[in-house]
Design a protein around this nucleic acid. Sequence first.
DNA 1: ATTATAATTGAAAATGATTTTCAATATCAT
DNA 2: ATGATATTGAAAATCATTTTCAATTATAAT
Lengths: 138, 138
Amino acid sequence: MDTQLWLTQLQDNGYRLTDARRAVVDTVAVSTRALTPVEVFDQAREQYPALGLVTVYRTLEKLEELRLIQRVHQPQGCQAFISAREGHQHLLLCQNCGQATFFEGDDLDGFIQSVSRKTGYQITEHWLQLFGLCKDCR
Amino acid sequence: MDTQLWLTQLQDNGYRLTDARRAVVDTVAVSTRALTPVEVFDQAREQYPALGLVTVYRTLEKLEELRLIQRVHQPQGCQAFISAREGHQHLLLCQNCGQATFFEGDDLDGFIQSVSRKTGYQITEHWLQLFGLCKDCR
DNA sequence: ATTATAATTGAAAATGATTTTCAATATCAT
DNA sequence: ATGATATTGAAAATCATTTTCAATTATAAT
């Protein structure tokens, strides 16, 4: 997956490669679901049992800063993270299994311009997120 | 504003009307910005100084349950609430002053259907939020 | 109006998530 | 190999939210 890329990115930005970080990176890079810090902690400890929860928080912070992961907002909470995509992509989340799928969405431009005209706002960013049931859960 | 409506709604749902609740309702119903529990607490205490923060949390919980307010998700955090609109509306937030403006957005149907077709998901809900600068701040 | 009952209150304590501090350890450039 | 320094995990601190509880208050029944 992106594991190797992420490790390289960390190193290129002056961060050191450690077993703790490798375990966190391996866990998050591979997941198709958004994971909370504690979920990352539990899964990553299978690979590196000495891992501390604090290190999970610190590593997630760095990965977010490098835009390799992104925070996922959901009705149940907003602490989960998932591997990010290049460019402008939106998320589609399965309400049953948590499966996350990205999709492109810049067909919105016309719509956004019309909202801008009507409201007088200068619009610089948008969040679009879809919820439903994935192929397997529907 | 919606103050009276909200109080009636609370009462109709078996909740009692108290000075503490009136202060919270007055504060949130009138605000054009999303407010965090502590912001509500501070503002509402100007009207009812004996108010406790716990009561703010409890009242916000009830207002959300009655769908009179809704939680606002932002990059800086997701603890703020704002007066909700009837029907399906989306939020436009000013990144400078926090001003919130609602807009209608169901022109998305075609787009959502196309994503559904491509991904195999049955899509039941969507979140769209725009960020930018309001008329006054741009 | 008075009363009885049950909801509501605020304070304090408990919980849960995240951040900071710190001494020990591990990475990596030399 | 060595040394400078980033990183670690544990414990403590902080911050947001929830729970507990005895006192108070709104309201329905009288």
